[in-house]
Design a protein around this nucleic acid. Structure first.
Length: 565
RNA sequence: CGGGGUGUAGCGCAGCUGGUAGCGCACGUGGUUUGGGACCAUGGGGCCGGGGGUUCAAGUCCUCUCACCCCGACCA
């Protein structure tokens, strides 16, 4: 490839609407151009990186017995109605009608298509287990896309679906996929990706892992225990909060004028926030009664966990006029259970001598003991984990880190095979529902993540396995005949064995080098007057760790060495 | 969906209390240069996001709208 013909102008200045480093370099390097919010065109360099990533994924999927298939982008709504997701998924699912008025959707994930295909092809246990996968465009109308390729609406994803005749077999295969995923991330240069337990969200199912790249550019919060290795997404993370050892005290109503939040309450009574009880009020979908969650004053409610507990959607309560609750003074003692639902976070279990609202404006209750004063308390774990909380497995201190999700795997069970009535005839002649797993990796997001993990002040430093080209030839002084001959000669020769991009423009060295840095190709060969005069060229690596003068005749073998290191 | 911000040349920006739209980079041409974004000369490029209004006159003021970015809600 000649740079002079390469479409995608490299830019000196940072584009105004990019803030993530990967986004900036993808734009400045001429990799991508935005078409709409969360929708991008890819130019050749990005397309080449994407293809390399896809090929690595393909090899690893094939190595664990995957069969590559291709599902359609457009699916009939009927298919999603079978599984129930046509109604359960929100507005991120693009719905439309075709010419004849049939409801259609754009595929955002392909469980239904996979079951639709497999249920007519895998009628006997003898076909099992099997895994089918595709590398395909997905569309999700994200409420908030951002960060270049990190979070988009249209993207390429590898999604895989495995089918099994038992849960044990699924678990075994799930572990194989987990290992294959770690190999994939290692091969694309992201060996630091970790797998964490995660919420199965809209996918349903029990066990799920996310693969996270830890980086400040991340949008998820990960809880880690340095001591025992416990790691989980914030959405499901648990921690130990030690209960206080206070003795029981008599109940006492105290006057707390205009004290409506925990901080001022703690300050007013001169007690730590952990010795108070916070009332957090939610409205629950399909329920007319407010849900009050009591939690220790220094903790926060994790809405994702709460959502799981109540098994429906929840939102902070805002219909203040529709209730006679005394906001700011809501307490656990004496609430009318016919008007509200009440839950207690497990942080309050066994708590003595704490303070909560008195359900009366300007009054709180002191000396509350949960076991004594509150009958039939229902305890659930809905607290957000905080930095330095204690690990529930080993007692070590937990830390919080930001991460980007680059892949995920789920043990789905029979959610889809039952709802979509997929069966096979087992050995014993019985008709049974297969057990299913599904496994995803975002290709475009990986491109962004690789840059987040591998760059310097000048541009991306692509790992050799995914670099858009292997060799970048900069020809300075190309107007001099001998130099031009040497440059062209190398390009022709190396081009037979390697992927080479050649800068034969009559551009200043600074321009050529800056462009080369932005393209991030691992091995750079500089052909110039002062080298060629000595019968040499200079070879440098993009990471700037290697720099050497090499006789022109030896270039090929040196390059080969560098690329195989 | 809430909060904040920005829309002027391909990119980055300036344009004040209204008076014929500018700068840098990039691009074309000619020349001088040539190891980290060179220099001289010259040229092309604009529905000032869009509609409506105020005014003799609107990039500028008012109003509605659209798009994009960031934060939050949400989210394989």
């Amino acid at each position: 490839m000649l740079i002079r013909n390469l479409l995608g102008e490299r830019m000196k200045e940072k584009p105004g609407d990019a803030s993530l480093i990967s986004h900036i370099y993808l734009l400045r390097g001429g990799y991508i151009r935005q078409v709409s919010n969360g929708i991008y065109s890819m130019l050749l360099p990005a397309k080449r990186v994407a293809s390399k990533i896809e090929n690595i994924i393909r090899e690893e999927m094939d190595a664990i017995g995957g069969q590559e298939v291709l599902f359609p982008v457009v699916l009939p709504a009927d298919l999603l109605k079978e599984s129930g997701r046509y109604d359960s998924i929100g507005s991120e699912l693009v719905r439309f009608q075709d010419r004849t008025g049939h409801d259609m959707v754009l595929g955002m994930t392909h469980e239904e298509a996979a079951v639709h295909l497999a249920r007519n092809e895998a009628l006997s246990y003898t076909k099992y287990p099997f895994m089918i996968y595709q590398i395909q465009t997905k569309f999700r109308d994200e409420p908030r896309s951002r960060g270049g390729l990190i979070r988009v609406r249209e993207f390429t994803m590898k999604d895989a679906y495995s089918f099994h005749t038992s849960h044990d077999e699924l678990k075994e295969y799930y572990d194989r996929v987990l290992e294959a995923y770690h190999r994939i991330f290692e091969r694309v240069g992201l060996s630091q990706v970790i797998s964490v337990r995660s919420d199965s969200g809209m996918m349903g199912g029990d066990v799920a892992h996310e693969f996270m790249l830890l980086t400040n550019a991340g949008e998820d919060t990960i809880v880690l225990c340095e001591k025992c290795g416990y790691k989980a997404n914030m959405e499901v993370a648990v921690s130990n909060v030690p209960c206080s050892t206070d003795k029981e005290q008599p109940l006492e109503e105290v006057y707390t004028p205009d004290i409506k939040d925990i901080d001022s309450l703690a300050a007013y009574l001169n007690i730590p926030a952990s010795k108070t009880m916070k009332a957090t009020v939610f409205s629950v979908e399909n329920s007319s009664r407010p849900l009050i969650v009591f939690i220790r004053g220094d903790l926060q409610v994790n809405e994702a966990k709460l959502r799981k507990v109540v098994k429906s959607d929840i939102a902070p309560f805002t219909a203040y006029d529709a209730t006679d609750l005394n906001f700011g003074f809501i307490g656990a003692v004496g609430l009318d259970k016919n008007k509200v639902d009440v839950l207690f976070d497990s942080s309050l279990r066994g708590e003595n001598n704490t303070v909560c609202g008195a359900n009366k404006v300007n009054y709180h209750l002191k000396g509350v003991s949960i076991s004594r004063d509150i009958k039939d308390a229902v305890f659930v774990d809905v607290a957000k984990v905080n930095e330095n909380d204690l690990c529930i497995h080993c007692g070590g201190k937990l830390s919080l880190r930001r991460g980007i999700e680059v892949g995920n795997i789920f043990q789905l069970g029979t959610k889809y095979t039952e709802s979509m009535n997929m069966t096979y005839i087992d050995k014993d002649g019985e008709r049974k529902h297969p057990v299913m797993g599904c496994y995803g990796i975002g290709v475009g997001r990986l491109i962004g993540c690789i840059i987040e993990a591998h760059h310097d002040d000048f541009g991306p430093i692509w790992p050799k396995t995914v670099a858009p080209w292997q060799i970048h030839i900069c020809m300075l002084n190309g107007n001099i005949e001998e130099v031009n001959k040497a440059g062209q000669g190398l390009y022709d020769k190396l081009g037979r064995k390697f992927e080479v991009i050649f800068d034969d423009r009559n551009a200043a060295a600074g321009i050529q080098f800056a462009d080369a840095d932005l393209l991030g190709v691992p091995v750079r060969i500089i052909v110039s007057k002062r080298n060629v005069e000595k019968g040499e060229v200079e070879i440098v690596t993009r990471d700037k760790k290697t720099k050497m003068a090499v006789p022109i005749d030896h270039v090929e073998s040196r390059v080969k060495e560098l690329l195989s290191e």
